[in-house]
Amino acid sequence: MNEVILNRTFLSAFVGTALLALAAAGLGWAQAPRGVAALLAAGALAYAVGVFGVTVALNVPMNETLARLAADSAAGQDYWRVYLRDWVFWNGVRAMAGGVSGACLLVAALVGR
């Protein structure tokens, strides 16, 4: 999975979103009204930790471990059960964090107009 998804286009969008969200939060903290700044900070934090952090610290390493194991081996079959349970859980966390991030940033943009 990592070999397909880890490419220049995806990484640019993935890392770029984290950097832009953090930059918006920093600028907002310095210049926006406190409510808008708090929404920007919450959105950036949700993305940086819940989407970017979970992906880098958990999902990618799980993908790499799975890729190293032979599918027909006992170790591969045992890890698949763990992988499926944990990867789906953390993917759900990423999805919720992405939704929270998007909602916070959208509301901040609408309120801060």
Score class of each variant (00 low, 15 high):
residue 3 E to W: 08
residue 97 A to N: 02
residue 84 L to F: 01
residue 104 C to M: 07
residue 55 T to V: 08
residue 13 A to L: 15
residue 30 A to T: 06
residue 49 V to K: 08
residue 88 V to L: 12
residue 67 A to H: 05
residue 8 R to A: 14
residue 49 V to T: 13
residue 52 F to M: 10
residue 47 Y to L: 05
residue 5 I to V: 15
residue 72 D to E: 09
residue 94 R to H: 03
residue 77 Q to D: 04
residue 99 G to L: 14
residue 48 A to W: 05
residue 37 A to L: 06
residue 100 V to I: 12
residue 2 N to Q: 10
residue 63 N to T: 06
residue 47 Y to I: 09
residue 43 G to N: 11
residue 83 Y to L: 05
residue 106 L to G: 08
residue 35 G to D: 07
residue 97 A to T: 09
residue 42 A to K: 10
residue 70 A to M: 01
residue 40 L to N: 03
residue 10 F to G: 05
residue 67 A to G: 02
residue 48 A to G: 15
residue 56 V to M: 08
residue 57 A to F: 09
residue 6 L to K: 11
residue 84 L to C: 02
residue 61 P to R: 09
residue 105 L to I: 10
residue 75 A to T: 07
residue 24 A to M: 13
residue 16 G to C: 13
residue 18 A to H: 11
residue 92 G to P: 02
residue 102 G to L: 05
residue 91 N to F: 00
residue 6 L to N: 12
residue 70 A to I: 04
residue 106 L to M: 06
residue 7 N to W: 12
residue 107 V to T: 07
residue 26 G to N: 05
residue 41 A to V: 02
residue 31 Q to A: 13
residue 29 W to G: 06
residue 75 A to R: 04
residue 60 V to L: 05
residue 28 G to R: 02
residue 76 G to R: 04
residue 15 V to K: 04
residue 110 L to S: 06
residue 53 G to W: 03
residue 51 V to M: 09
residue 87 W to V: 01
residue 1 M to T: 07
residue 13 A to R: 12
residue 89 F to E: 03
residue 21 A to S: 13
residue 87 W to K: 01
residue 9 T to M: 12
residue 63 N to I: 02
residue 63 N to P: 01
residue 25 A to V: 05
residue 110 L to A: 10
residue 87 W to G: 02
residue 25 A to Q: 03
residue 91 N to M: 04
residue 62 M to D: 09
residue 91 N to S: 10
residue 81 R to I: 07
residue 7 N to K: 14
residue 79 Y to T: 02
residue 60 V to T: 03
residue 13 A to P: 07
residue 51 V to G: 03
residue 37 A to I: 08
residue 42 A to V: 13
residue 56 V to I: 09
residue 61 P to I: 09
residue 87 W to M: 07
residue 59 N to V: 01
residue 33 P to L: 14
residue 9 T to D: 15
residue 90 W to S: 02
residue 58 L to W: 01
residue 5 I to S: 10
residue 102 G to W: 04
residue 76 G to K: 04
residue 44 A to V: 10
residue 69 L to S: 02
residue 30 A to P: 01
residue 21 A to C: 14
residue 13 A to S: 15
residue 6 L to M: 13
residue 57 A to K: 00
residue 82 V to Y: 12
residue 9 T to V: 15
residue 27 L to K: 00
residue 34 R to N: 12
residue 99 G to I: 11
residue 79 Y to Q: 10
residue 50 G to A: 11
residue 8 R to M: 07
residue 69 L to D: 04
residue 40 L to F: 15
residue 33 P to N: 14
residue 97 A to S: 13
residue 43 G to L: 03
residue 83 Y to F: 13
residue 84 L to Q: 09
residue 58 L to F: 10
residue 111 V to A: 12
residue 48 A to P: 03
residue 34 R to S: 11
residue 106 L to P: 00
residue 107 V to Y: 04
residue 84 L to E: 02
residue 112 G to L: 09
residue 50 G to I: 06
residue 24 A to W: 06
residue 12 S to Q: 12
residue 86 D to N: 13
residue 17 T to F: 14
residue 2 N to C: 07
residue 81 R to A: 12
residue 51 V to R: 03
residue 61 P to K: 12
residue 44 A to W: 06
residue 68 R to F: 04
residue 19 L to H: 13
residue 5 I to N: 08
residue 93 V to F: 01
residue 100 V to E: 07
residue 23 A to S: 11
residue 26 G to W: 01
